[in-house]
């Protein structure tokens, strides 16, 4: 801890950390322990702990070699999965482990993020109704790398995957009806990407739209 404190960016932050919180979190969960940013670049998340609880170890063991990394950060249990042929089977395993509720699928563009292994990341936020536990499954993707859809396991994935495709341009395989959800069908580019300014064809699209509106007038 002391070494980490040395690396504090500002004294103010130090003070804040002293009155650090113990927020009311469920009994089974590890207490949130927000540590300082370590000096060397990490893969993604800075404050990490080893998963300590039995169910976490069990789950890691069950998924076997497909787990790239597993850690606890800010009280949240993360599993980084490999995007391989076992992807769907792993999720089925996880569901059988009790995580029956898929809360969210978030897509992230790590283009300008230091220390990220690949360009994109997908985070599956899972919750178990019976055990009252949360789990985040992460998978990292290269540009143009496709990922299997989990829609057969959780129907709720439909909108989430369509959104990730629409705004981030991540392609999900093995599912029907992967089309834009929020933006018009003929939109050019994926706006949540960090390099969206460099998308080709945006000007033409806008010009076309303006022309169309003028004609309607």
């Amino acid at each position: 801890m002391s070494e980490e404190l040395k690396n504090n960016p500002s004294p103010e932050k130090d003070k804040k950390e002293e009155v650090k919180a113990k927020k009311p979190v469920e009994g089974e969960k590890p207490k949130p322990a927000a540590k300082k940013v370590p000096p060397k670049p990490q893969i993604v998340v800075a404050p990490k702990e080893e998963p300590a609880e039995d169910w976490q170890k069990e789950l890691i063991k069950k998924l076997g070699d497909d787990v790239e990394e597993a850690y606890v950060s800010v009280g949240e249990f993360n599993i980084v999965l490999k995007n391989n042929e076992n992807f769907i089977a792993n999720f089925e395993n996880i569901k059988q482990h009790g995580f029956d509720y898929l809360a969210d699928i978030s897509s992230v563009d790590y283009l300008k993020f230091e220390g990220a292994p690949k360009r994109f990341g997908l985070s599956y936020h899972l919750y178990s109704m019976n055990m009252n536990r949360r789990l985040r499954v992460k998978v990292f993707l290269d540009e143009n790398e496709k990922v299997p859809s989990v829609m057969d396991i959780w129907k709720t994935a439909d909108f989430h995957e369509r959104e990730a495709y629409d705004l981030m341009g991540i392609v999900f395989t093995g599912r029907q009806g992967l089309k834009r959800i929020l933006l018009p069908d003929d939109w050019v580019g994926h706006p949540l990407r960090k390099d969206v300014d460099k998308v080709e064809g945006r000007e033409e699209y806008t010009a076309k739209l303006v022309r169309k509106l003028r004609e309607e007038d």
Partner: peptide, 12 residues
């Protein structure tokens, strides 16, 4: 602090 800076990390 007046200007809020958060440590590197992710949270849901």
């Amino acid at each position: 602090p007046k200007t809020l800076k958060l440590p590197k990390g992710e949270v849901y």
